[in-house]
């Protein structure tokens, strides 16, 4: 038990609070309207897919925060005392660069979708996806290097957490790549860039989000 766990709890409460406080303070029947007691649908001003997407990000945030908390607690000598810090392969810095570039490419794609430029959109998406694949390959190479060196035994929680957390992050990127693949298929099938604007926008946000998760994760791994 530590402050981070409490912070998660508080964060969750804030999320719940933020989601509904607007609606709770609404008193539609007080609005003028000659007793018509009618009003337009008072929904969050976003497409449904976006609302569900952000809710999903909330779920994933909860997942990663809990993993980070578990990491932090397990490091504490009162929860074990067998933690041996490990040196992460230098390759991770290169991988970080690749992931940043993929995020940039996705942002570029988002701008192109807005401008309805289908040709360049395809190019930007392909760039973004390939850079992501390169990142994932780089991560696997890093795993291989670690295993080859023989210093990263699974019985050391520090290296076990390294494998676990990079794998969980990688799986989330693969989930993103599935949507990426479906989007490419739609472009090949003749969908206009305009019609894909929302999908590409959500993809870009997802990529930025996973970049931030990676930067946090990387910082935690390197500093401990």
């Amino acid at each position: 038990m530590n402050p981070i766990t409490l912070a998660i709890a508080l964060l969750c409460s804030v999320v719940v609070w933020g989601l509904i406080v607007r609606h709770l303070t609404a008193m539609p029947w007080e609005e003028a309207g000659g007793g018509s007691h009618l009003r337009d649908i008072q929904t969050v001003d976003l497409p449904a897919a976006k609302v569900a997407f952000y809710a999903l990000l909330g779920v994933i945030t909860s997942l990663f925060l809990l993993f980070f908390t578990a990491y932090n607690m397990r490091m504490n000598p009162s929860h074990g005392g067998d933690w041996h810090s490990v040196a992460e392969p230098g390759l991770l810095w290169l991988n970080t660069g690749l992931l940043i570039l993929s995020s940039v490419a996705m942002q570029w794609a988002r701008a192109l979708a807005k401008r309805d430029n289908q040709q360049k959109l395809l190019l930007a998406l392909i760039f973004g996806g390939l850079l992501t694949l390169a990142f994932l390959t780089g991560q696997m190479v890093a795993w291989g290097q670690m295993q080859a060196s023989g210093q990263y035994s699974l019985s050391n929680p520090a290296s076990a957490f390294f494998y676990l957390l990079t794998a969980v992050h990688g799986f989330h990127l693969i989930g993103g790549l599935v949507v990426w693949g479906l989007t490419l298929k739609k472009i090949k099938g003749g969908a206009s860039a305009q019609s894909l604007q929302l999908t590409v926008e959500l993809c870009s946000v997802y990529w930025h989000y996973l970049l931030v998760v990676w930067l946090m994760l990387f910082a935690i791994l390197v500093s401990t």
Binding site: R39, A48, S62
Partner: peptide
């Protein structure tokens, strides 16, 4: 959040929906 019919503000929803809605948010985070 998104699909309620015209006139159905959050504060007009039956408590059943409020209970299920809040429980779902709890589930998603827990």
């Amino acid at each position: 959040l998104q699909a309620r019919c015209k006139g159905m503000s959050m504060m007009r929803m039956p408590l059943t929906v409020w209970g299920i809605f809040t429980a779902t948010i709890l589930g998603l985070l827990a």
